[in-house]
């Protein structure tokens, strides 16, 4: 059911390459050699049980969590550690890291809007102070992004005056205002009341159709099935299964994915059961 989108075949550089990523918190191995490649304009959803390392994986992609081994390459550029430094890994200077992070948008489950700034203030803050845009330019672009998420009318409101769904859409606009090349979403609808989930998913759907490269950690199986090009199932720090959504949902090959999907189905949540019963 996903719209066939124009793939950027001319670009040989993958949007993201992750090789043998290892990460542990103390004794707790959270990522155990994860490898993943995402092409430009691809939409990848990541699903998996709680504690399987999905959030940690996203946090490693923009190096908000340093990893222990392996490499992450975003648009052809290594992030976190300097490449080819032999046996000892050298952490890259903060300045360089900040430059790389500008191009990676991330949206969190807790929207994390800046409460002391207006909606527009939230959206123009980084473009002005990080990208160095003029105020006028940033406002013009910021308004565009707010319009896109349907919240231009709220530009002068403060985050506390908005519903959860609206706040989350502002958070998406804030990330988009930096013109990122890759967008990460970490369970962005999980904190929302059920009736507010739709508006946020619709925004993400539009974004996907416009060709944004997206990695979406989600529990919304309908979204995974309808919008993504690829579904990745993670369990216990590993990518267990990866494939086209229609194939994955109708015919999962791995026992653990089967068990996971069965458990979801058993819960009789409308979005999930419909995702699995309606044929793709």
């Amino acid at each position: 059911m996903s719209e066939p989108r124009m793939k950027d075949v001319s670009s040989p550089v993958p949007a993201l390459v992750i090789r043998r990523l290892w990460k542990s918190y103390g004794q707790n191995d959270v990522l155990k050699g994860v490898s993943l490649q995402v092409e430009p304009q691809e939409v990848v959803t990541i699903i998996g049980p709680s504690g399987s390392g999905k959030s940690t994986l996203l946090q490693c992609i923009n190096f908000m969590e340093p990893f222990d081994d392996g490499e992450v390459i975003v648009n052809g550029k290594h992030i976190g550690y300097l490449p080819n430094t032999g046996s000892t890994r050298v952490r890259m200077p903060e300045k360089q890291l900040n430059l790389l992070r500008r191009d990676i948008g991330i949206v969190f489950q807790q929207y994390n809007l800046f409460p002391h700034l207006t909606v527009l203030g939230n959206v123009i803050e980084a473009p002005i102070h990080v990208r160095g845009l003029s105020r006028e330019e940033a406002i013009a672009r910021g308004r565009q992004q707010l319009d896109k998420v349907g919240l231009l009318v709220k530009q002068n409101a403060y985050p506390s005056e908005l519903s959860g769904g609206q706040q989350q859409r502002v958070a998406i606009a804030r990330a988009l205002a930096m013109s990122p090349q890759l967008m990460l979403f970490d369970e962005v609808t999980s904190a929302l009341d059920p009736e507010l989930v739709g508006e946020v998913l619709a925004t993400m759907r539009t974004l996907a159709q416009e060709g944004m490269t997206m990695i979406v950690v989600t529990h919304e199986m309908a979204f995974a099935r309808d919008v993504s090009d690829r579904v990745i199932f993670m369990d216990d720090g590993n990518i267990v299964e990866s494939g086209r959504p229609d194939v994955f949902f109708s015919n999962p090959t791995h026992d653990r994915s089967k068990a996971f999907l069965r458990r979801l189905n058993g819960r009789h949540e409308p979005s999930i059961s419909s995702a699995l019963t309606t044929s793709a």
């Binding site: 980084a126 804030r174 930096m178």
Partner: peptide, 8 residues
């Protein structure tokens, strides 16, 4: 986290 993720 949000601020640093924006590249600040």
């Amino acid at each position: 986290r949000a601020a640093r993720s924006l590249g600040m």
